[in-house]
Design a protein around this nucleic acid. Structure first.
Lengths: 198, 198
DNA sequence: GTCTATAATATGATAGAC
DNA sequence: GTCTATCATATTATAGAC
């Protein structure tokens, strides 16, 4: 197999296993086994686990960029685009209930390890944050765009953590609905509705 | 030293290290070193790491119970009590920015490990959840008490995760303020105010 | 570019002296 | 109740054959 293709397979397997089992709990042997490679050969492609982590973060940044571009192209209005983000909680519900949010859990783990890559992992958050902020500007909320982006990012993280703890579909559905209602209430000039939860 | 006292020292050291470094990343040697014990002697007190984890979760449940009882005694109104919960994000801000929320990060890690104790760890969440729900009932919101409890628990989790990712005090302060405003808006019969973010 | 073999280390865990 | 010594295993990582 061509080196580049093998490398890509390793990165994708590591991406999945780091998400499903965690960074520390995933060994080179696990990944090699997944790809069908010998442990020894692994080191031809990645010298250290940190180098692999770096490649995984880069891969996630690229995947995220691509997803945001698709949302951007698919929807006409900024509100629809932000709803695409909110809907991630529903689209990926099964995985989130099993393993939490891939970004939040990685950032948490790397923070505890005080890992050099912790700030690079947080850049995945920043990619969502800046895209959301951009949407809130187009939405007509320029002054508070970043705070609104952080607010909705915060909510999605909270829902993901409790979804993994309780594995309660109804809770996820309710909070996604609250987020949509909150978003609608953010329309400039919209009279504040008597929302119960948001 | 008396066995019970040594055992307690082990549990408290493990509690701290599991929080600061994570469960998997903390070894028996780390904990033994912290307590000033030999690795061998460790096994007199705990046969397995899972047995230790169980003791740590029990310890956290007791600490949480005790904290909730103090909040209950210190405040006269349910709203003040719920504010005590929200203020945890400020009181423990430095630790949360470094290591995230102790409950959320443990639940996330155990979910990924598919650890037997994952549901026991989630009981720490449930202790907060039921106490908060109780406060919302006293607050006059019986019908939605559990959903409101889950909502505020969700927000505190989201803030903790992003606090660890960005270590941004202003973000934490803003979101805590939003939570307080949200709570005030939950008073039964309160006309909905034009809150920007909540 | 992939393999087997192996080094060096750290882990969870045990045995037995004191 | 604590210690030292040790086991079995798993890990990251390297060397060298093919």
């Amino acid at each position: 197999m061509v080196a580049a293709a093998t490398r890509q397979q390793i990165v994708e397997a590591a991406d999945r296993l780091f998400y499903e089992r965690g960074f520390e709990a995933t060994s080179f042997a696990d990944i090699a086994g997944e790809v069908g490679l010998s442990r020894g050969n692994f080191y031809y492609h990645f010298k250290t686990k940190d180098e692999l982590l770096d490649a995984v973060i880069t891969h996630r940044l690229l995947k995220t960029r691509s997803m945001l571009d698709i949302w951007e192209a698919k929807s006409k209005t900024p509100e629809e685009r932000i709803v695409s983000f909110v809907n991630l909680l529903v689209v990926n519900q099964a995985k989130i209930m099993a393993y939490g949010c891939p970004v939040g859990t990685l950032c948490n783990e790397l923070a505890k390890l005080d890992h050099l890559a912790k700030d690079r992992a947080a850049e995945i958050f920043s990619m969502f944050r800046h895209w959301l902020s951009h949407q809130f500007i187009a939405f007509g909320r320029e002054a508070e765009a970043d705070a609104l982006a952080m607010h909705i990012l915060m909510r999605s993280q909270g829902v993901a953590t409790l979804a993994a703890a309780y594995r309660d579909e109804i809770f996820v559905r309710n909070e996604v609905e609250n987020m949509r209602a909150w978003l609608a209430a953010q329309r400039p000039g919209t009279p504040v509705l008597p929302e119960t939860l948001s």
